[in-house]
Amino acid sequence: MIDNPKTGMTLIVKTITRLTVGLILLFGIYIILHGHLSPGGGFAGGVIVALSFVHLMLAFGKDVAISKVSKNLASNLESIGALMFLSIALLGFLGGSFFLNILPKGTPFNLFSAGIIPLCNIAIGIKVGVGLFAIFLTLVIVEKSK
């Protein structure tokens, strides 16, 4: 399916996509994980993760992208991301208040610091990444009802 020359764009685009799509995904994950240290965070990183899948879809055609992340999987992951964010917020009740940052804060500028904020970023990253991809997928595969 991937090597089918009839779907998707030309060989040049496909080769370049093969090389870059992993890097784009990795960059998105980096942005998500470093959200509490540098500009970016869950939303920006999630958008980049979604763009890597959109990139795949543009180059290879929609079937390849759907075989990686189907619509149902995207929808389920989106709900899981939202529930994860909510349960992180609910964890604060253990310390006495909704959204309370109960985890140890650590030292600033370390990757493992800032308590629940990196966890929130991961949850938002999952939600935004698959959510945006699901929106794109829905707009692409609208069937003509004639």
Binding site: N72, S79, I80, A82, L86, F93, G96, F98
Partner: peptide
């Protein structure tokens, strides 16, 4: 939980219900 802790529940319960339904409803 203290009595005042019920205030955020007005947002938490419908939000959790919404995503639970979309997760397990199918």
């Amino acid at each position: 939980m203290k009595a005042i802790d019920i205030i955020p529940l007005f947002v938490i319960i419908p939000l959790a219900a919404a995503f639970l339904i979309s997760l397990v409803g199918r």
